[in-house]
Design a protein around this nucleic acid. Structure first.
Length: 283
DNA sequence: CCACTCCTGCGT
DNA sequence: ACGCAGGAGTGG
């Protein structure tokens, strides 16, 4: 479900509900998530005050005083919600963490592709992010440059490469297609087809695409909601994703879809011709 | 590189 | 009944 912008929307909505609050009792379901739930690690957070939230790519974390905390990945269907403890948890609630006397932080995930992993100090937190590349929403010039080099070094198709979280973090299946449309680059062009300028242009398009989505508080199809249960408004702004057969807003051509690397890719063949000469595209 | 896998729910 | 879904790891 969530890509970088949705995770950022959740993090931002969660922060004011968590910061300064004292963690209470932990409860975990018996069903394993992607990684089995470490109940002891969760319990060790008890009586500590939440001091920070963070995110890199699609991974987010909550930190308590002393540097311990929780790393959360939402997978396809994960949600993080703050709800009154008295409210009955919905089906597929896998983790409940007390917040003060009145509320609970709840992790809900029907498909259980997500994970909740406790960490005990900052270095352990960093280790959980070892394979995650620079965050495309918040990176600096150095991060963007590193992503550009990595992109230009891969012989994989651009659409497939954008989904590789080691190269750059936060782009998922929706925004990969959207960013390529914004950059007017074919999803089937290869990383090695890009010259320096084209790689830069693509990564700027990625950045702008994700920033727009954050401004609209994410894209909601069926499930995505923030920590208060509010849906995002970005769906109406999508240019190509899930719009196969419709007219391209830019040229009027027909938007197509095709499976690429076992995922759906959406693009406008007229705006994003195959193997476009990248040097020419720069002008 | 690619295919397959984990799991539930929803739309056709 | 079947295919597909916003993610990501594994094994060939």
């Amino acid at each position: 479900m969530p890509e970088g912008p949705e995770v950022e929307t959740i993090r931002a909505s969660l922060a004011p509900l968590l910061l300064g609050r004292v963690i209470g009792a932990a409860w975990v379901s018996r069903k394993p998530l992607r990684t089995p739930l470490a109940a002891r690690g969760l319990m060790s957070l008890r009586d500590r005050v939440v001091v920070a939230t963070g995110r890199r790519g699609k991974a987010m974390w909550i930190e308590v005083e002393g540097g311990a905390g929780l790393m959360v990945r939402l997978g396809m269907t994960g949600r993080l919600l703050v709800e009154p403890a008295a409210q009955k948890p919905v089906v597929h609630t896998h983790v409940r963490l007390g917040l003060g006397d009145t509320d609970e932080l709840r992790f809900v995930d029907p498909r259980r592709f997500g994970s909740v992993v406790p960490f005990s100090h900052a270095a352990a937190r960093a280790a959980l992010l070892a394979d995650v590349g620079p965050d495309a929403i918040s990176w600096d010039d150095a991060g963007r440059d590193a992503a550009a080099r990595a992109l230009r070094a891969t012989s994989r198709a651009l659409k497939v490469a954008l989904l590789d979280q080691r190269l750059l973090a936060g782009v998922g299946n929706i925004y990969a297609s959207e960013a390529l449309f914004r950059a007017r680059l074919s999803p089937f062009a290869l990383g090695t087809d890009l010259d320096e300028g084209a790689a830069r242009r693509l990564l700027l398009a990625v950045e702008e695409t994700l920033a727009d989505a954050v401004r609209n508080r994410g894209t909601s199809f069926s499930d995505f909601v923030d920590a208060r249960g509010a849906r995002g408004d970005h769906r109406a702004h999508l240019q190509v994703y899930d719009r196969q057969g419709e007219a391209c807003a830019s040229c009027g051509g027909r938007i197509r879809s095709q499976t690429q690397g076992q995922r759906s890719t959406f693009w406008c063949p007229r705006c994003q011709p195959a193997r476009r000469r990248v040097a020419a595209a720069l002008r």
